[in-house]
Amino acid sequence: MKFGYVSCLPETPLITRFVEELNNGRLMGTKCEKCGAKYLPPRAHCKCGSADIKWYEAPRRGKILTYTPVVVPPESMSKYAPYMVAVVKLEDKTRLLAQLTGVTLNMLRVGMLVQVITRRVGADRIAYEFKLV
């Protein structure tokens, strides 16, 4: 299974593991065993230089920091437009970008509560997305 609505990178062990977990309903980030830094989405290496990382399950609730509706999409996303993208601060203060579904522009405000859910895209693709709580 591939990650995202569209992609232009090959599937590496990191993304394969992430996608497997997401498919089972778990949103996984990585944590550096050396300095404690947390990454969501996950990274194979910490910015401190360490490759000593451990997977952790991220919280699924957060608040909208900002959002915008994309009306003019990249060519590759034409069949999905228009759609909303948002940046959300999760309960553990990590921040995540994804599409925000089931909303209209005029019902949205900064600070609204959202949940992160698994989203299947067609037969062979998967992503996470935000839904208002």
Partner: peptide
């Protein structure tokens, strides 16, 4: 980021629009 942003359909206008919404708020 082509791994974690582009797959959601972000565009350059969308990044600045998100900053504009945050600034307006």
């Amino acid at each position: 980021d082509t791994r974690w942003e582009y797959p959601f359909g972000t565009t350059f206008p969308s990044f600045y629009a998100m900053m504009a919404n945050a600034h307006m708020h």
